Simulated assay, not measured.
Amino acid sequence: MKRISSLLLVVVLLCSTTLASAQSKKKSSGGGSSSGYSTGIGLRGGGYSSGLTIKHFLSGKNGVALEALVTTEYKARGARLTLLGEKHKAISDVKGLQFYYGAGFHLGAYQGRYYFDDVRYYRYHKKDSYVVYRRYVADDATYVAFGADLILGLEYKMEDLPFVVGVDYKPYFEVFNGYTGFYNDAAVSLRFTF
């Protein structure tokens, strides 16, 4: 867990220097994106995973952004890094509201795995009573997970405050210890904007 905390600290420090550089370029060039901000950093809390989110718009007013997520699942001991490319489209009826979609990939590592290994039903003496037996398995091995992500969301840039509030749906496909699965994740984000 100390390694994960150290890794998160390094990522935040690297991103803050990058964000400071991007902010100085924005001030000097007067540029930015059609979203009303150039870079945002904050928290993402969801039903399946939560963590840090950093979004940066590429130069120009084309609405293309890169988003990085450093998250962990609630019951997992580990972390996941997700990189996404997103296309933003302004909703003309509401100032500051944008629809976005995109795709990317993730890589993570988890220590331990918790699951029900076996379920058996036993019938006693030809009666109608049944007993359910479940064997619960937990191990401490480290597993690497990787996969592909999609994202679809809405975000609102507050007019007088340097904050963006967003909601997104992020389904993803993952390979984990030889098993594959398709998962759904939805979250709410709050970012401080530069």
Results as ranks from 00 to 15, higher is better:
N62F: 14
D118L: 06
T72M: 02
V64W: 13
G104L: 02
F116A: 03
A79E: 01
A148S: 06
Y74C: 00
R123Q: 13
V131M: 06
D139W: 04
S59A: 15
K75C: 05
G102I: 04
L66Y: 06
D149M: 03
D118I: 07
G108E: 10
V132R: 02
I91L: 13
F146D: 05
F116R: 03
D117Q: 11
T71N: 04
Y143A: 03
T82V: 09
E86C: 06
V70R: 01
R135A: 07
Y100S: 13
S59E: 11
Y101F: 15
Y136N: 10
D93H: 12
T142P: 01
Y101D: 12
F146R: 15
Y110H: 09
G112Y: 05
K127L: 07
Y122G: 15
D139I: 07
A76Y: 03
A145V: 10
F116H: 07
L66H: 07
Y136K: 12
L83R: 03
R123H: 13
E73V: 05
V70M: 07
D118A: 09
S59W: 08
Y124A: 10
G108M: 11
L81Q: 02
Y114T: 15
V137N: 12
Y130K: 10
K87W: 02
T82M: 04
E67F: 00
Y133D: 14
K75T: 12
V132E: 04
T82F: 00
S59H: 12
